[in-house]
Nucleic acid binder design. Structure first.
Lengths: 348, 348
DNA sequence: CTCCTTCTCTTAATCGATACAGTAGCTCAG
DNA sequence: CTGAGCTACTGTATCGATTAAGAGAAGGAG
């Protein structure tokens, strides 16, 4: 039987409230009595007010829930995700707020209950597709929520389509006309392989939709119809799946002269696939990514830098101290095209 | 005013308990009534039982607290820490348990209250020095706790001293006799610079103490007294501080022929310092690290591989489904010396 | 000497749910 | 016709705290 406020109160011979005050409002009782109470608590082994009970009474949990990619453990393999989380943690820490990583897990039902059982004051969502039932459950909680993929009351993100438009323009400017796009959530079948995306607008995933829109517009401006573009789905955002997806594109005839991956991780996989075939990135085939993770610079990958840390930091800020002005509650951050050796003039 | 069980109960005309059962124990009421209740809840905008109240009543929080390095946001810059967290997240997810990252923050008082306010069923501690007041506070909570740096009831770790002993033996075997050791928490002054460690045993930090013990024993076996060894403290476990600490060692006369860093991050910094001076790692000066982060392999750094992911995974397992046999509650994992080009025969 | 403060502590209501004992109504064996 | 057994709920205590309001004693002003 764990000691409670009452246990301590009985031991000292005071009321429960006085003990409560000894912890939370030292000015409400004499210093001597307070010391006596704390001393008794120490002796009994009472570690202070039960946080759950306190949360219930106070009406705040002191934590924000993080919905972090479909599988929590995956998130930690993604350097971009980790940077985002670092920014979020930074803000949380200065606001003395915890971060509850919600175990969405593999199955739908589990994710639903995990979201409903989370004792939090708000949610920060990162890379969870909007059609997940867990997302509706989170929304239903009626708590403040920042989702960089959904334009809610609070929002921090980038202009995805404009960023990929710049990538596309860069490549068409180099003379490229045969393109392959690789990404996740591009098809109904969640396996790695060629798929047909009739129109980017129809894609259910916000990020995939917007990024492909940008590519499409750039291609169109150079006279390349979307139907000429090869699209390959990657089962997951991993280097291996990126390599496998790129392989499908590279083994086509005629071979695309440029591979546009919607993330750096996939693009790094594409570079692996080039290497296996003895192709030179930037000469035989150009490759682009998105995110600008640290490894991208080392690999000489042309990509879009988006401020991951900043995005996480601002997400936290929006949740923990939302600006009064509604306009400031929707933040769009700048991106930058980083041109590196993985892109070059189209061959021939 | 948020709706509660009572609100829904009143709307349907049943008792509060029945509504509670509709959510938590569907077998306790007729399917028709249940549907009616859930429908009413939807209409009213009731998102399900309040998680905090449920936690209080049930006596479990459904989350474990993670005390993660003195500053939370720092943890995410350390690849080893992230791997550890990934393992922990993996276990947590399969057990349908959340992970509460506790905001220790910068100041002592804040860390204390953060630990006391965490609604959790246990703690997992990673790289928080044992003398922090927050650590005693966590211990005082009387919850299950895994700390890889403190030999408690539950423990998962490695034989730190044996691992560094192997590093030392490797270097003495290569003929090295003039050593510099760089690490954190080596001195009373938390600044980067030379410090004197009379005996490793006296160091307050568990990890620093054990690792230096291993080095010391290896040196002793080769006839090098500890007092001949240069020790340099690094203010923090960063590449920059590693470079700065290594600089102190390299600029001494006579120059040490080997620099032993107690983490890879510091060792990578040491390599930077070598480069700045035009010295060749493995030829002019040998450098060793500890952890085997991914960048270590790329840099050709000789180091000790310790299973970060596995360590996190087992920590979670110990907390969430502790073995019945007390002996199995203390796990020691194997380490492996990874010899790479950063170490070579002593010059002359 | 009375009234008003001030200080210190207590009383009681409340946060939102869960769990267990209890009860009404019904079926059915003996 | 009685009572055991079941279904489908209800009533109430409880989880462990916080907080506003109140109460008693001490001290100071008039």
């Amino acid at each position: 039987m764990r000691p409670t406020l009452q246990t301590v109160a009985d031991a000292v011979g005071v009321s429960r409230s006085t003990v409560s005050n000894a912890y939370g409002r030292p000015d409400q009782l004499s210093p001597e009595l307070r010391e006596k109470i704390l001393e008794a608590a120490r002796r009994i082994g009472y570690a202070g007010p039960n946080p759950t009970a306190r949360s219930l009474r106070r009406g705040r949990a002191g934590a924000i829930g993080v919905l972090f990619t479909p599988t929590l453990s995956y998130a930690f393999t993604d350097p971009y995700a980790v940077e985002f989380l670092r920014g979020l943690a930074e803000t949380a820490e200065t606001h003395r707020t915890g971060l509850l990583l919600v175990p969405l897990g593999a199955d739908d039902e589990g994710a639903l209950s995990a979201v409903r059982e989370a004792s939090v004051d708000g949610f920060c969502v990162y890379c969870v597709p909007g059609w997940y039932r867990a997302m509706s459950a989170a929304l239903a909680r009626g708590l403040p929520m920042v989702n960089s993929e959904y334009q809610g009351e609070l929002y921090v993100g980038i202009d995805e389509a404009a960023a990929t438009r710049a990538v596309g323009d860069h490549l068409t400017g180099l003379g490229h006309r045969r393109f392959a796009v690789i990404g996740t959530y591009l098809g109904t079948d969640p396996a790695t392989g060629p798929t047909t995306v009739h129109a980017p607008e129809d894609l259910p995933s916000f990020v995939s939709r917007e990024r492909l829109r940008g590519y499409r517009d750039a291609f169109a401006a150079a006279g390349v119809p979307w139907s000429d573009v090869v699209t390959v789905n990657a089962a997951a955002n991993t280097r291996e799946d990126g390599a496998a997806a790129a392989a499908y594109a590279l083994d086509r005839d005629p071979r695309p002269t440029a591979i546009l991956a919607i993330t750096d991780v996939l693009a790094l996989g594409a570079l692996d696939a080039l290497g296996e075939r003895g192709l030179r990135a930037g000469a035989d085939v150009s490759v682009t990514g998105f995110d600008d993770v640290p490894a991208a610079a080392d690999a000489g990958l042309t990509t879009v830098r988006q401020p991951a840390y900043e995005r996480g930091r601002i997400a936290g800020e929006l949740l923990l101290s939302p600006p009064d002005d509604p306009a400031e509650r929707r933040v769009t951050l700048d991106t930058e095209l980083m041109v590196r050796p993985s892109t070059g003039p189209a061959p021939d």
